[in-house]
């Protein structure tokens, strides 16, 4: 069942700025990673989902409710973490958390307290005096404390230290197990890779790639680094079908990228010689994304 549905959404600011004919869906229990360069249209899309902006054409809906005309009903099911957090003035973190829980008519603060503890947050200080990371933690507590069915997280780990980023990734994974549907924009590949089921890449207002994370992982060939005792053995890989990416004759190492279908061929070839070590170079999605960021893989 699709929870978030964006259909042919267009909002142009200039001919190149904005979003154009953009469609995406996030299904029940799915984590959708939304990535793309600055100014590509991520936040504009999110503004439509929250009902802050009216579509020029097309439609954004959540739980079959129109995001513009029924934004208040939509918001009841939503947890939102804005990209640039700006809190109301003259409040402490705890005031804000209490205020929002009053507005949402929460029966208890159990989840909020748990999150505060989990992120080692001290919410007693004035929001205006808080560091970027601390503000981000307050924002996270506010987005998750009412246990919403749907989460929209715009660059959620900005300002968090690596330990807290890991805590956050755990939290997202837990929410996913509970069946929550999540749309998350980010520039941190690791974060996307370890949480998202599906990744959409947006560039200049258009979705240019929308794939399951596994597909991206599987579609890339595997890369192995093989070291040899004898330099002469390396010759085997320098000329034939394997076409090494790198040859380091000083160390006696070659780096080979091959399709899984050719793995047996490689193993047979290796079995005839003396191999010192062999390891897989972990394929990161990063390379895949980087291509899109630079615009090498597709012209829009």
């Amino acid at each position: 069942m699709s929870i978030i549905q964006v259909e042919k959404l267009t909002k142009s600011f200039t001919t190149t700025k904005g979003i154009f004919n953009l469609s995406l869906t996030v299904n029940q229990g799915e984590v959708f990673g939304f990535i793309g360069p600055n100014g590509a249209g991520k936040t504009t899309t999110i503004r439509h989902l929250l009902g802050f902006t009216k579509p020029q054409s097309g439609k954004a809906s959540i739980l079959n409710l129109d995001c513009w005309s029924q934004s208040q009903q939509v918001q009841r099911h939503l947890g939102y973490l804005p990209a640039e957090i700006a809190f109301p003035e003259n409040m402490t973190g705890m005031h804000l958390i209490r205020y929002l829980s009053d507005l949402r008519k929460l029966r208890n603060m159990k989840k909020a307290e748990e999150l505060i503890h989990r992120f080692e947050l001290d919410p007693s200080g004035k929001l205006s005096r808080m560091s970027k990371g601390t503000k981000q933690k307050v924002g996270i507590v506010c987005a998750f404390m009412h246990d919403p069915e749907i989460l929209i997280l715009d660059e959620p780990t900005t300002g968090l230290d690596p330990l807290m980023q890991a805590v956050f990734i755990n939290l997202v994974q837990e929410e996913k197990l509970k069946g929550r549907s999540i749309l998350m924009s980010s520039h941190v590949f690791e974060e996307i890779e370890s949480t998202c089921d599906r990744i959409g890449i947006i560039k200049q207002g258009r979705i240019i790639s929308n794939m399951r994370t596994e597909e991206i992982r599987n579609s890339s060939k595997r890369t192995y680094a093989i070291e040899f005792f004898e330099r002469t053995d390396m010759a085997l890989f320098e000329n034939d079908a394997f076409k090494p990416k790198e040859v380091d004759s000083e160390v006696g190492r070659v780096v080979i990228e091959i399709e899984d279908s050719k793995i047996n061929e490689l193993l047979r070839a290796l079995s005839t010689i003396n191999v010192k070590s062999m390891r897989e170079v972990p394929s990161s999605l990063e390379e895949h994304f980087r291509g899109y960021y630079k615009g090498e893989q597709i012209d829009v």
Binding site: F52, S71, Q72, Y80, P88, L103
Partner: peptide
Amino acid sequence: RMIAGQVDRGSMAYHLAAPIS
């Protein structure tokens, strides 16, 4: 301060997402 100031700062998002119509 009540309306434009909060829109300009961005803090309006918190009230509207709270959700307040």
